[in-house]
Structure formats: structure tokens, C-alpha cells
Write a protein that binds this DNA or RNA. Structure first.
Lengths: 242, 242
DNA sequence: TGTACATCAGTGAACGCGCGTTCACTGATGTAC
DNA sequence: TGTACATCAGTGAACGCGCGTTCACTGATGTAC
């Protein structure tokens, strides 16, 4: 029973050395196992091999720990999304789909982070750091949308990039929540979540009236597909937004 | 303290009469207040004015109660979605947008049901009744997608209705989860969730290559907008799905 | 280089709490005859 | 119409449990001189 704990103590000495990190890692493991709701301060301490009072030296309470995890999640999320975006190379549409896939990959491979970020009930504004990290992550999508908006054929109305970014985010989030999580919420699908999202993004981009042939940002001399007929142009659907 | 309980007993007598209903209602209130994770069997009993052992006469355990609530949620969801759809009147696109709004309205006005259905960790298949109710609700969207697919201009490829239905569901769910819930997950938006979803749906429908002028299902004599150019037709984005 | 001392990061025992669940029970209701 | 009895739907006391949190404490580490 307790010889194990004493052994651990013997190995590491009285001071843990890196308890804060160990607690964050333990919490992450526990959330992955039992969900954000089931994770417990005491459990994290136990998993780190430390007394239940020890975590209070590093976190005010359970919520502060959870907020920290959510923030780290957004930081990693941002770094993965922006690696996928790769500044729009080799062309905007291809890079765009890569971002979508990275979104799903994150939801699937980092369920604990994803839970803490979106499903744990931690308010977005519960710490300045969390808020900033969340906005930086959204910023990647926002920047990509900006570049996508620039694809609008000359003379065509440009949809607001902010709106596009919100659309894209909600598509990815919707598919991730419904279909790409490890837990039991998974439903049977005729195609993979990735394929589903890719098709959705392509249809959406097409609906914006943009060419989707993947040539337009790399070679300016490539043939442009014919623009949409005049009478569909003047007020795009985004024109309805106030 | 306990005179209140005794008074309630005096009013209703030894038998409650409708405890099962009362417990479901109490659970719904509690979930709305504290989220699905915070809801407690004992709390529900207390709110129904009954001893903590009483609920066991009606539900095996907390999970069974939660499953019941999720099922009822899907039943109400289905009835609201199908009322909104109204069999596609007055025209498919208009009815479609109404379904989207009904989706968001449900998420906003019935947060407790929504939580139990999508965020409580209750597996979709935890009871046959729940599963069937969930599928009936999805069926409404599926049927609407079927009708939408029928809008494809003659000669154009028809996207699979199932895929469209999944797209639409995930758009609505994404927006509902991120922006239309009462709790703190709400973010600041440049437009309402309803407007955001409406624009998204319109862009999507347009991307399918369908006319969106709202006349095509009511008056067959109405002028059709010109179809998309030939070279964009043969393989729609959905053609990529395996 | 050594020593005194402040600070840091843990301990472990204890607390009060509310939960889920079980148990023998009992009051109320329905039904067979 | 009355009565005996089975069944149903509650009670309330009790249990063991794990949690969050506090407290005085102590071992280890760092620093001033």
C-alpha cells in the first residue's frame, strides 16, 4: 500500500521538484480518462504521488488548474493550426483544408485539452491568459479567412472575413463535437469526419463564388474559371448580415 | 426547516402521485442551473420534496434518469424541427432556414435538454428509446436535405442527401455550441447566431450549385437562374467522398 | 568556507459535507371474493 | 357492500466513501555575511 508512496518519496526526496508540471500532466491524463467533469483535485495529487494538500501550493483551486489547462490547450491548438496553415502554401484552398484537418486531428488526439477548452464549463474570460490564447488561436483561422476573401474575383463583393472565420470555426467545431471525439458521442457515418469536413469546406468556398481549382494563388497566369453569372453577384448571402 | 417538508407531505399525502414526472422536471431545472455534470440524484429528490431513497422506485440510477431526459429532449427537438420544416412550405430554402433557426432556438431555450442530449456524456446508444428518438430528430433534417437535393438543376450531379444532412446538422450544432448557449462559452459576435447560421446555410446551398431564389418549389414557371458553367459541374466537391 | 536564518514546498491528520445506495419499515391503494 | 390481502410507493436511518480545504508542522534549499 503505502510503501509505494514512500518509495516514490525516496526516489524524489522531500521536494518534488516539478510538481506544477506533474499536476498539469496528471490532470490531463485524468480528464482524458473520465472527462473534465470527473476530474478531481485530490486525484491529480494522488497521481502525482503527493499529499492532497500539496496542490494548493501551486493552484488556488481546481478551477485555476482547469483554466491553466485550457490555456495551454489553446496555445498548442494555435501552434498546430498555424503550422497547418503554413502561411497559405502552396495555395490558399489547399492550406485551408489542411487547417480543417488539423482542427479535427487536435480534437481527436488531444481530447483532454479539447474538453478543457470547450466542454469543461471554464468561462472563456476566466483569466486574461486564457482569453488571449483563445483569441490567438481564432486569429489563425481569421487570418486564413482574410486570405480566402482575397480570392474573390475582381468586381465581386467580398464577404467579411470575420464572418467567414466564424463559419469555418463552427463547421469544424460542429463536426469535431458530433463525430470526431473518442467518447460515446460518436455516431455512425458514411464517411470519415475529415472527408465530411473537406467536402463541407469546398462547398462553402464554392458558395462564396470563389474559384476552388487551387491554382489561383500560386500561378497568376493560370486560367480562371468563368465567374458566376452577373445576376447572382450584387448581393451575396453575406449581404444580409447587418 | 422540516416543517416545510411536513407541510408538503400534508398537502400531497403519503403518495406523491406523480413522482416520476416531478423528478424529471426537477432534474431539468437543476441541469439548467448547474449543468448536466452538477446535477445530483439526491438534489432532484429534495427538489421534489421526497426522501433520497424515493427516486429508486422510478429510476435504476442517476444515469437512467439522465437518459430519460435526453430522450425526451430528442422527442421535443424532433417535434420543433418538424414544425419548423412544415413539409417544406412555402418553399424549400425558406423552410430550410426556419429549421436552422429552430435548432438554435432549441439550444437557447432548452439548455437543460440540450445539455442532456449533447454534453452530458450519455452515450447515444444507452437505451433503444434514446437511440430511436435521436434518429427521428435527425430524420427531420435528413428529409429536408432530401428535398433540397431535389433542387439540383436537371443534368447536374446530385449531392448525397445524407452528406448534406450531416453538414447541416454540424453547422447548426457548431454555432449552437459556440455561440448560442446561455452559459459562459458565449463569445462576442459581430452578428447574432441566427444571422450567422442563415448566411452560412445560404452560402452552402449556393455552393451546391442550387438556385436560392426561393421561387423554384412553389412556382414551376418561375424563371430559373442560369446554371453554373459546364466545367464546374461534372464532379462536385461531394464527388470526392468515397 | 562556514554558519545562521528566511523562505519554500512539501506532510499528514483532521474537519465537515453531500453523495449514492441499501434496508427494513409502513401507509395507501387496488382487487378478489 | 364489506373485508382480507397483495402490491405499490413512499420513509428515514444508516453506511461507507471521497472530496475540498485548513492547519500546524517540518525537511530542504538558498542566501547574507
Amino acid at each position: 500500500m503505502s510503501w509505494r508512496k514512500e518509495q516514490r518519496r525516496a526516489e524524489r526526496g522531500y521536494h518534488h521538484g516539478n510538481l506544477k508540471e506533474a499536476l498539469l500532466q496528471a490532470a490531463l491524463d485524468l480528464i482524458a480518462q473520465k472527462g473534465a467533469a470527473g476530474f478531481t483535485f485530490a486525484d491529480a495529487a494522488r497521481m502525482a504521488g503527493v499529499s492532497p494538500a500539496a496542490p494548493y501550493r501551486h493552484f488556488r483551486d481546481r478551477d485555476e488548474l482547469l483554466t491553466s489547462i485550457a490555456q495551454r490547450g489553446f496555445e498548442q491548438f494555435e501552434s498546430q493550426l498555424s503550422a497547418a496553415w503554413d502561411d497559405g502554401r502552396p495555395d490558399t484552398v489547399t492550406a485551408f483544408e489542411r487547417v480543417g484537418k488539423a482542427y479535427l486531428a487536435f480534437a481527436r488526439e488531444e481530447p483532454a485539452f479539447y474538453s478543457a477548452m470547450f466542454e469543461s464549463g471554464v468561462p472563456t474570460d476566466s483569466s486574461p491568459g486564457l482569453m488571449a490564447a483563445g483569441e490567438r488561436a481564432f486569429g489563425v483561422i481569421r487570418a486564413a479567412a482574410e486570405r480566402l476573401a482575397a480570392l474573390a474575383p475582381p468586381g465581386a463583393p467580398r464577404p467579411p472575413a470575420m464572418m467567414m472565420a466564424l463559419h469555418i470555426w463552427s463547421m469544424a467545431h460542429g463536426i469535431a463535437s458530433l463525430f470526431a471525439r473518442g467518447d460515446a458521442a460518436r455516431r455512425k457515418l458514411p464517411m470519415s469526419p475529415e472527408e465530411l469536413l473537406e467536402a463541407e469546406l469546398l462547398i462553402y468556398v464554392r458558395g462564396l463564388g470563389f474559384p476552388t481549382d487551387r491554382r489561383n494563388t500560386t500561378s497568376s497566369a493560370a486560367a480562371e474559371p468563368p465567374p458566376l453569372p452577373e445576376d447572382e453577384r450584387p448581393a451575396g448571402p453575406w449581404g444580409r448580415a447587418k
